[in-house]
Amino acid sequence: MILLNCPNCGPRNVQEFRFGGEHNPRPAAPLAVDNAEWTDYLFLKANKLGVQKEWWYHRAGCRLWFLAERHTQSNQVLKTYCWTARPNREGETCVE
């Protein structure tokens, strides 16, 4: 059971979190992109074998959505941080 370091609560068992999928930003103007780019956003996945940037939600805890970088083979989590530019627990600004 991997430990996930919630930017707000610190390291917690992964069972407390909900996986939000690989980082896949929504097009700024959906109507402006062509069908290929829209299909890529909706359905296609990098599904990387290696360090993947992904979303997590601290469902049983502080209800923070945050980003993590995890190696998808070993499940080793390299770092976790919030998306928005506001200070997290250690005071370091976590900028996306």
């Binding site: 909900r18 939000g20 930003p25 929504r26 979303w55 939600y57 469902r59 209800r63 923070l64 959505w65 919030c82 998306w83 928005t84």
Partner: peptide, 13 residues
Amino acid sequence: FEWMQWWLQSGWG
């Protein structure tokens, strides 16, 4: 609730 929080905390907030 989680769906709304997702959009709020990932850029639409």
